[in-house]
């Protein structure tokens, strides 16, 4: 990571009619950083990504990418970005490899160059055997992999990935993560949105949590957990309708209790101690689990809602 600020947003706002999708956010991303946007459905992640990708005009506020203004230098910025949108928009009139070739040509690359790059990316997307096939019958995960491969055709300096691993099986997810780590080592800046906590914790140096178009917290995954949650969490499951009855008994155990429809979460730095304390009070859940705090808990604390419904 360098000190060069690659993306800077100040009071960045996006409205659709009366509806405010992105509500004056401030973000700064440095070259070589892996930066994440985390948030529930409708938080404004994709709206932000589209503005950064220069395919959605800024309603108000300032946005600078690679030192350039998207309103003026859209094409010049886009030439240096790799974009994997949330929805796969592949060209169904073209074969798998043609999708890569044609897309590469849009960046002004030569025929020889796009063919060379496509070889490597087909391999990466594990689609070499399907290279001549039409795109339409590919499985959802394969289409996702092709979209990601396509976003790398122009050898981008900045990679925008909007929920890249949605629909990928665990093996494909790890292949992607490996590639992203490698790209990061090569100095590529990663900007990622995700619903997956493990993904954010694995990939992101720094992230912001968004809710209702605003940024509600910002920091490294570790710092966010330290600031907004306890070290450990005890998850308690009770029989249906029994949960309410036990709430009083939990008073004073741990730092905080969170009530979810199907379980209770007790936030405590020492989960085992908290569990033992509960046993002493005669609380015997159907099942219990002590785990470390995750970004999911950070999100729950900040917004009172779970991230993945």
């Amino acid at each position: 990571m360098t000190d060069e600020v690659l993306l800077s947003a100040r009071g960045l706002t996006k409205t659709f009619g009366d509806f405010v999708a992105v509500d004056g956010i401030d973000v700064e991303v440095r070259r070589g950083e892996a930066f994440g946007f985390l948030g529930p459905n409708g938080a404004g992640k994709s709206s932000t990504m589209r503005m950064v990708g220069c395919v959605s005009p800024v309603t108000s506020g300032e946005l600078t990418i690679l030192g350039l203004d998207p309103a003026v230098d859209g094409p010049r910025i886009r030439a240096r970005l790799g974009v994997c949108p949330q929805k796969d928009i592949l060209d169904e009139d073209l074969s798998v490899e043609e999708n890569l070739w044609v897309y590469g040509r849009f960046f002004g690359l030569t025929r020889a160059e796009v063919r060379r790059r496509a070889e490597d990316l087909l391999e990466f997307a594990q689609l070499t055997e399907r290279r001549g096939d039409r795109v339409e019958p590919l499985s959802g995960g394969m289409k996702r992999r092709l979209t990601i491969a396509r976003s790398l055709m122009n050898d981008p300096e900045v990679l925008l990935l909007d929920e890249p691993t949605t629909g990928l099986d665990p093996q494909a997810r790890h292949v992607l993560w490996d590639r992203l780590f490698r790209l990061k080592r090569e100095g590529v800046t990663l900007i990622i949105t995700t619903h997956y906590m493990d993904e954010a914790e694995q990939l992101c140096d720094r992230l912001v949590v968004m809710d209702h178009g605003r940024i509600v917290a910002e920091g490294s995954p570790r710092a966010l957990i330290e600031t907004h949650s306890t070290r450990e969490v005890v998850e308690l499951r009770f029989a249906v309708d029994e949960q309410e009855r036990h709430l009083d008994a939990l008073d004073g155990v741990g730092e905080r209790v969170e009530v979810l429809p199907d379980r209770l979460l007790v936030y405590a730095d020492d989960g085992d101690a908290a569990l033992a304390e509960l046993g002493g009070r005669g609380v015997h859940p159907l099942s219990s689990l002590v785990r470390r705090s995750t970004l999911e808990d950070v999100f729950l604390t900040l917004t009172g809602r779970t991230l993945v419904d």
Binding site: V55, P75, I89, E92, N154
Partner: peptide, 12 residues
């Protein structure tokens, strides 16, 4: 087919 959505993410 949303062919142009993809194109407009490039310098096109």
């Amino acid at each position: 087919a949303k062919v142009y959505d993809a194109m407009l993410a490039t310098p096109v």
